[in-house]
């Protein structure tokens, strides 16, 4: 293992993880106002109607595939009766279908973004950088699947890449696992790491706002004026000195 391998398969992933986590905390604390999907639906709906659901449902399927393929050890799957053949067949068929939907959706969305005047004008520099890395990651990932799983004989990433990902997450990094992985898989992992580094500073943060709570809250929300009076609550230990409270329960600064 040389220095480059160390940088690529240990240093970079951990740097990415740190930036991803700290970046999100920082962004949430300092820029709640900017935390949005910044939808462009009001500008154009015809292409979005096709592209957006294709892209989003596609990427959700891809995400599920990655969780099963990378995070779950294959012995666990053997245990519930999913053997190597079954896994490979399922992953290739479902993965290819998801990738086809995802890539088609992405293509529609990029075409729309570039050709529709208002949508293009509403695209920031950060959006463009993010699009480069997002597309790169998706395209390389799809290429790897096509080249190795469909055309090639099938690369068993569950022996190398998956344990490497888990080794990183468990803080027992084993870079040797990645050294012999095919180039396309290596590039896919690298561009994904770079995407994770960019993530907190782009509109991708909206992923973490998936409104699951909507299913469980009452329809009508009431809030008291007092809760957000003033700019924000005073931090503990920094309250100004004031007359003692007279009416119980009455908030004072």
């Amino acid at each position: 293992m040389n220095a480059l391998d160390f940088v690529l398969w240990i240093a970079l992933p951990y740097a990415g993880m740190a930036v991803f986590i700290v970046g999100h905390i920082w962004r949430y604390r300092y820029d709640k106002f900017g935390w949005t999907s910044r939808s462009s639906e009001v500008y154009e709906t015809r292409l979005l109607r096709l592209g957006s659901p294709m892209f989003h449902f596609g990427i959700l399927m891809v995400l599920a595939g990655h969780v099963v393929g990378l995070l779950i050890p294959r012995e666990w799957l053997y245990f519930i009766g999913i053997d190597e053949h079954m896994y490979h067949w399922g992953a290739t068929v479902l993965g290819t279908a998801a990738a086809a939907m995802l890539v088609a959706g992405l293509a529609i969305l990029i075409f729309r973004r570039r050709t529709n005047g208002p949508v293009f004008l509403a695209t920031t520099v950060m959006d463009k950088i993010m699009y480069v890395f997002l597309s790169l990651t998706i395209v390389i990932g799809t290429a790897a699947t096509v080249a190795h799983q469909i055309i090639g004989g099938g690369y068993n990433y569950r022996e190398t890449i998956s344990p490497w990902v888990r080794s990183i997450l468990l803080f027992q990094p084993d870079p040797a696992l990645m050294i012999d992985a095919p180039l396309l898989f290596q590039l896919h992992a690298l561009s994904a790491t770079l995407l994770f580094i960019l993530w907190p500073f782009t509109r991708l943060v909206h992923v973490f706002s998936a409104p699951v709570g909507y299913l469980f809250r009452p329809y009508i929300v009431y809030r008291s004026r007092d809760e957000h009076r003033g700019s924000r609550s005073v931090r503990r230990g920094w309250e100004g000195s004031n007359l003692p409270e007279k009416t119980p329960g009455q908030k004072r600064f």
Binding site: S39, P211, Y222, H228
Partner: peptide, 22 residues
């Protein structure tokens, strides 16, 4: 997102700009 609410004091309907996710 639960960003919209009715103020319990006077019933005014408002959008919490920090919680709205668009």
């Amino acid at each position: 997102s639960g960003a919209m609410y009715k103020r319990s004091e006077d019933g005014i309907v408002l959008v919490d700009q920090d919680q709205c996710r668009g």
